[in-house]
Design a protein around this nucleic acid. Sequence first.
RNA 1: GAGCCUGUGGCGGAAUUGGUAGACGCAGCGGACUUAAAAUCCGCCGGGGUAAAACCCAUGAGGGUUCGAGUCCCUCCAGGCUCACCA
Length: 950
Amino acid sequence: MSQSEQQQTETVPTSRYDAAMAQVIETRWQQWWDEQGTYVQPNPGEDGFDGSKPKYFCLDMFPYPSGAGLHVGHPEGYTATDIICRYKKMKGFNVLHPMGWDAFGLPAEQYAIQTGVHPEVTTKTAIDNFRRQLQRFGFCYDWTREFGTIDPEYYRWTQWVFLKVYHSWFDPEADGGLGKARPINDLIKEFVDGVRPVKLNPNAVEYTGAGDLPDGTDAGPWETLDNETRKAVVDSYRLAYLSQQTVNWCPKLGTALANEEVKDGLSERGNYPVFRKPLRQWMFRITAYADRLLDGLSDLDWPNSTKTQQAEWIGRSEGAEIGFPIVLPGGLEMGESLRVFTTRPDTIYGATYMVVAPEHGLVEMAIEFAGEDTDCDKINEYVKTASNRSDIERQENKEKTGVFLGLHVRNPVTEELIPVWTADYVMMSYGTGAIMAVPAQDQRDWDFAKEFDLPIVRTVTPPEDFDGEAYTGDGPAMNSEILNGLHIEEAKNKMIDWLTKHKIGAHRVNFKLRDWLFSRQRYWGEPFPIVFDDFGNHHGVSEDSLPVKLPPLTDYQPVESDTPMPLLGKATDWVETTAGKAGVDGMHSDSKVRRETNTMPGWAGSCWYYLRYCDNKNNDQLIGDAAQDYWMGEGGVDLYIGGNEHAVLHLLYARFWHMVMYDLDVVKSKEPFRKLFHQGMITSHAYQRSNKALVPIDEVENRGTEEQPVYIEIADNTPVERIVAKMSKTLKNVVNPDDVIAEYGADTFRLYEMYMGPLEASKPWNTRDIVGLYRLVQKIWRLCIDESTGELRITDNAEDTVEKQLHRMIAKVGSDIEKLSFNTAIAAMFEFVNVAKVLTKDQMERFVRVIGPFVPHVSEELWHKLGNESSVAIAEWPNFEESMLVDDEIEIPIQVMGKLRSKLHVSRDTDAKELEALALADERIKELIEGKTVRKVVVVPGRLVNIVAN
RNA sequence: GAGCCUGUGGCGGAAUUGGUAGACGCAGCGGACUUAAAAUCCGCCGGGGUAAAACCCAUGAGGGUUCGAGUCCCUCCAGGCUCACCA
């Protein structure tokens, strides 16, 4: 051994906190917690459950276990909830803090197709990897409650909920007009008893099913009807129903997608083009809940932006539905009206033409009753082009196109005949698929009118200096006979009254929200608990034949095609079965049935998972009463943290399921998630060329200094700008949590992510900054442990300033955790270790507990070194004294005219009079106000003095 | 096009909710210890100004309310997110 090496070994302390020690400490305690069951939270009725404690249900959005492993964004939210849960536990709560896997869905299937490995295998591998990674963070999850949405014991209940919804209808009159779901058997009984007229659901506008009954017509007494008609009527009321719908068909993915899964005409997964196509699909009647989904938002402690997004998605707008009598070529009135929805009934005098969507029924009628002015070829051509245009094309090209249908309607207020056009700027899916065009007050109509030379009549007087085109602002009505002079609101009301009185129209509320398309033609999802008989009628299987297990498929390659071919169709043995085997009540057990071959969308499993955590081992019920009463209580989940990318989809769907289950007495809380919080995105850096193109980080070098960097793209020596960008594989700026833990340990990682900034803010990852938090852990260690011996460093003399600072830290950390302000809580820890040089045993025991939620491993290690045998996780949160938080002597700024000029050092409780006197007597102040008149002295005791003098 | 959010040192961010702007961390600079370095400890650290002070400027820009504005109001600029031909 050389001399220098010898010296080195002598100088390196034997017990220094470094990465190697972090690994040892962290894995040791993680194993111990696991053995001890430290984080296992018993349920009501189980051993060790203490019902006297209040509950805290803290939920993370469970991850989708992808093959790529954990992203640094995952532990951000998870560390936050972990800190809160540990804190709440120490404050005496029973804490429910579970974790599971959202494991069905398209990405897993796509990945399986790419790799040729079965999705069940890849998904389970990914889950194991995710679990390992999460456990390495030392999160206090109760792993005995873990499950995946792909577990048959779990999706059994997903299917059970589907059946519940399937066997229900929405009674709009129930609950005093609020409406609620009721069992479908109630409805049938009302039909049988003659209490309710038997007719197709008037609210089921989408229904085009088998019964051949015109919408709204009474079918006659129940007993006179054949089975087919009865079924058609009942089915039209179901909350889960089959419908021929124009859906978003994605040929590349071989499946239909929900509106929510289509962004800018491309599939959210994979970015493939999406086209409109009619398909027979399972739908959820979520529109029945539009009002309740909207109204329920007001009571929730959710971010405003999320509430706004949901409200806008639901898209409630008030206006009128108006009928315009149709006049065929040649002047024949056939007694039918073209119905439109408008938010501006006051502008009806300016309605100079009508537009219907290309898919609207009137287009066919125009061809059927074609006159001289009807160019059938042109119309057919237009409709065909419009349906072939993907949504992206529609959005890219907003130039107005359209064709005159050759027929007219009578404007019911002016009695004038106005032409009817078809154009793709009117959507079949909104309102009635038809509009009255008022070019003077709507820019889109204006553009169309200009394009096709249609008349424009202003009915709202624009301001004198108005030089725009369509005027959408307020002003007195003009050219509007009975409305002239009225402002918009009054005019609207007056017109609606008039329309109602003349039975031409009525007040109407319209929603953007569409019913939820629930079928997918893919393999990796929950099968429907539904079979079809030889006549094509659907039947739910019985509850006790659940789960309907997903059949193993070796060939899960999707068929890229324009016609849907559900993958489960390949499992012929599974599909072709009998009523007895499938478990259909009320059919002969040998009757042949075919199983539904569509699967549920990825959202299904996440719609109710929070409930299952409460009682995940219950084989008889989705959730037991005692568990539900305790954990869900009145308000549901106490805190739900996850990304805002779920602001609409998941959170809206889950609320909908919850409301249905509430109506059907499955759950007792009105809403699932009382408080919601979104963690911000963790971003990274990348470089940007002058043309805004992004450059990966490994293609740029800094040719300047640290202080004045000059970033140059290596390939062509051009300067680029350093910007904040999302982490992505292509930019090569992804950070792997495993690497960070290996270099610094999990405690440092946790501190770093919490110290980056406010939890809700999006913030860039800065590897350089991690060392600051690493040093904090080391300082904590050195404050408590003698590095050279590994023994505790304890003093018998409590120093006043240290004791005071400790109380402050306890108070600050506690209140900051409650506010989810973790960065400032950590700042308080820095301040404490910067002040404290040595602690008494009593002080150390309090200190170690306060840091516990943030750095559980170091805390546990020190806690045990202090002689404790049980976990610090179940220790009590230390108290602080209010009196220790304030200084006896405080500094009071003296301002003159609002500018800081001097300071007073006075006793904390100096009153206003004395402060004023002291301030005016201050040497510096005397100088400044000399020769001036003191107009006013503002004194805020304990805060400041401001002298107004001039 | 509509709605929402954000803008504070070289960087990440604090600011008792209208009351001393820049807590805390990173980076940087100076010093102590060391043969040297690392680690650690002490100090400095928005700009101008001064020997040092005083003082002046400063929270994207401009205006307003107020004894007092990063915080409230109006206009504008920049960036981000969401929705988007929704009648």
